[in-house]
């Protein structure tokens, strides 16, 4: 069974008559990396918001493990099941990198681990040193902030990772590091990773590639 399933999903912005997409049917399974590509403004980020429960479809339904996402507690869904990496990062800028991650774990109700140790491990994994972990986010570079955002999304060990341009600010080395993490999460740990991207390097690690153009999703062959 698919982890996430879109059934005849339509969406248009509140107060607008323009439909972003119409009657979309997609399925996302555990253990795979999906990339969504398309022009800016095509609605890729909107799709991620719908999948994360931050927004609700105006038509059709999105199911998470067979349950209508619109009907379940979406706060709980975001806190427990989904890890979201925002294009605009959305970090608490006046808190330290470490505090951002520990707070995320607290919100998700993570127990049984030393949260600080886990947070430092995650940051280390994305290339942030313990010294930088104690700095306020505002004092980190764009790339470092993006990696903090990635670490935060993984802090509560979610089964679903939704990433919006996760490598947009990263250099090659860190891009490769992050993509390797995604690959491990999907292929070794059985998580579902959905990435919205423009970057070809990212699509290269995908198990499925979907393009969104004029409200229509088309599957592209992998490797192109």
């Amino acid at each position: 069974m698919a982890m996430l399933a879109l059934q005849n999903v339509s969406y248009r912005y509140e107060g607008s008559t323009k439909t972003i997409f119409n009657d979309v049917n997609l399925q996302f399974e555990a253990g795979k990396i999906y990339t969504i590509v398309g022009k800016s403004g095509a609605g890729k980020s909107t799709l991620l918001y719908l999948l994360s429960g931050l927004d609700v479809a105006t038509g059709g339904r999105i199911e998470y493990e067979g349950e209508n996402l619109a009907a379940i507690n979406r706060n709980h869904f975001r806190a427990q099941k989904a890890g979201i990496i925002f294009q605009s990062l959305n970090l608490l800028t006046n808190a330290t990198a470490l505090d951002n991650i520990i707070l995320s774990m607290n919100i998700s109700g993570v127990t049984g681990v030393d949260k600080k140790v886990r947070a430092l491990e995650l940051l280390q994994k994305v290339g942030i040193s313990p010294e930088k972990a104690s700095r306020k986010v505002l004092k980190l570079s764009g790339g470092e902030q993006q990696r903090v955002g990635i670490a935060r999304a993984l802090a509560h060990d979610p089964v679903l990772i939704l990433a919006d341009e996760p490598t947009g600010n990263l250099d090659k080395e860190n891009e490769a590091r992050v993509l390797k993490i995604f690959a491990t999460l999907a292929h070794d740990e059985g998580k579902c990773v959905i990435i919205v991207t423009h970057a070809k390097k990212v699509t290269a690690v995908a198990d499925e590639i979907w393009s969104l153009e004029k409200g229509v999703f088309r599957q592209l062959p992998v490797g192109k």
Binding site: N75, N90, R152
Partner: peptide, 12 residues
């Protein structure tokens, strides 16, 4: 903004 981030992280 802070409220938005916390809510996006799933804080009720």
């Amino acid at each position: 903004y802070e409220v938005g981030v916390l809510r996006a992280m799933g804080l009720a």
